[in-house]
Design a protein around this nucleic acid. Sequence first.
DNA 1: TTGAAAGCGCTAACAC
DNA 2: GTGTTAGCGCTTTCAA
Lengths: 340, 340
Amino acid sequence: MSQHSTAPPPTLADVAEKAGVSRQTVSNAVNNPDLLRPDTLARVQDAIAALGYSPNRAARNLRTRVSHLIGVRFTPAEEGTANGLMDRFLHSLVASSAEVGYHVLLFADSDTEPLQAYDELLRSTAVDAFVVTDTYLGAPQAAWLAQRRAPFVAFGRPWADPQATHAWVDVDGAAGAALATSHLVERGHTQIAWLGWRKDSFIGEDRRSGWARVMGEHGLPVAGLAARAENTVACGRASAERLLDEAAPTAFVCASDTLALGVLQMMYQRGLVAGRDLAVVGFDDSQVAQVVPPGLTSVRQPLEQVAVEVVKALQGLLASPPVVQQGVLLSPTLALRGSS
Amino acid sequence: MSQHSTAPPPTLADVAEKAGVSRQTVSNAVNNPDLLRPDTLARVQDAIAALGYSPNRAARNLRTRVSHLIGVRFTPAEEGTANGLMDRFLHSLVASSAEVGYHVLLFADSDTEPLQAYDELLRSTAVDAFVVTDTYLGAPQAAWLAQRRAPFVAFGRPWADPQATHAWVDVDGAAGAALATSHLVERGHTQIAWLGWRKDSFIGEDRRSGWARVMGEHGLPVAGLAARAENTVACGRASAERLLDEAAPTAFVCASDTLALGVLQMMYQRGLVAGRDLAVVGFDDSQVAQVVPPGLTSVRQPLEQVAVEVVKALQGLLASPPVVQQGVLLSPTLALRGSS
DNA sequence: TTGAAAGCGCTAACAC
DNA sequence: GTGTTAGCGCTTTCAA
């Protein structure tokens, strides 16, 4: 009960003494309970409970060469955008990995050399594996880690290198955009614009293809109805203005909630009302989509599932022998709100 | 260059052999470079660089009884609200703590016993300290950790127990609300409503006091101009409707961006325009505030500063002898946007 | 089924 | 300034 301020936590030896067994037996009680006779096991477990014993992580890590930590480079949501994926994903990841005895170690990358933080963590055996969340074009992490044969799972496909053999989990962006477009077609729209990202964004082009496919399937026009913009509200607004003036669409499908908010801002300026004068669908189901009046219909990524699959892949990677589970592609859903 | 898949990382002994010195000398080169002769130091550093040596964390932790990890219980932003503080704070914390050689370990609490995760981490010496972010009424973490004499710093004052002696960092909510109210007064408003939280929320009452004070200083009425609601958009909207109908304010100061969005939704329904028909100010400068048309003026917490102060306090706590830096109260700013 | 011995990689304490 | 010794708490042999 009354614990002194700096009393060191009990060790295996303390438990062993209290239970009247050897240290090894206590270790077995913790890691291989089946090996013990029931009565011995019970006695040891009582001692563990009485002392409040928990195995020292550092010692265990040193011995087993396993840290039970997975490293994640934490990139915060950009200010002024509607992007809040990381927050949701991280929570799911923390929860999923806790179930298999893992904790998440967060790190920032050094400004100078972006890969240095990964390297450092790896060489000091501080983490067992990484979860990589930036797989956009030009992000070097995945290739670099693969080359080092460091265990990692990517959230996002290896767009730039389809030959890559590492494990990844991703959400089908084309299917998401198709979902959004189909929804608008069902609502009776025929002039449906696409507001997407720059052409060199693989993710953006993937999502765009979903829009184009559904439009084609319904024999609807796409010429002049697509625009590309930087992923900022201001750029989204500018592009939306141009699209509206030049092609007079009645609905917008956007590659992100941020761009969709550009559309809403444009509409606000022109006195148009979302859901009445124009339909708008975003992508990512951010908090913004959920609360902005009158609610922004948005494609929702199943991040909880993503996290579960990531952890599953991680377990394979860390098993012996390692099992590289290749890509897993999950399907998004559509969160319907007032804007459509 | 070419590294075998499972080649174990180099150890102190490898470096020592390569540099032709003892292991202890390598250790000193890393931890107390001043003790070495310059030429020896250079030779050892060359060997370290050549081998790509990084001290094994587990071994170091075991020996020094320090993990260089700080534990944070990760609570994601609630869906359907505008709350995104955690994300921003966490990033700042990761960055600040990296500068002093610390990483952040994230954990979820077990559904059954909320304190169990803390206890486990503590007893296994997995973390050196905690950063606690829930200090609202009834949150038991701080008191529990204090009783265990576990090192921790709270983001948030010990509202329920002003006698508490632990280190904390907080943002002056009353000052924030005062800032918002003053701004509206300057804009010529005299009927300024307060939309806040339930009376048993210390934080809510603190913020409310800032509004009441400024109103009083200007001889403006407060009777009938204050409402309390749950922190949801729907409750905010309902309360805003009632306030508007009964007291006809021309401006709203809200205890959160979530409530402010309730006001915006109410206005949307009634065809009112923020910044023209009514002024609205939120609290927390969330992404939502930044992108919702026409921009929501909001009180911004200096989370980067908070993180810096938290880390400073943490360093004091972990120094020998420990130094408990008591409370630090920081001032928020006002992010001006179209809604006011 | 249980116990004894060895050692993971590192650093604190002391000797040289 | 540099080297030697010991041991942090644990788990993996191997023997009893």
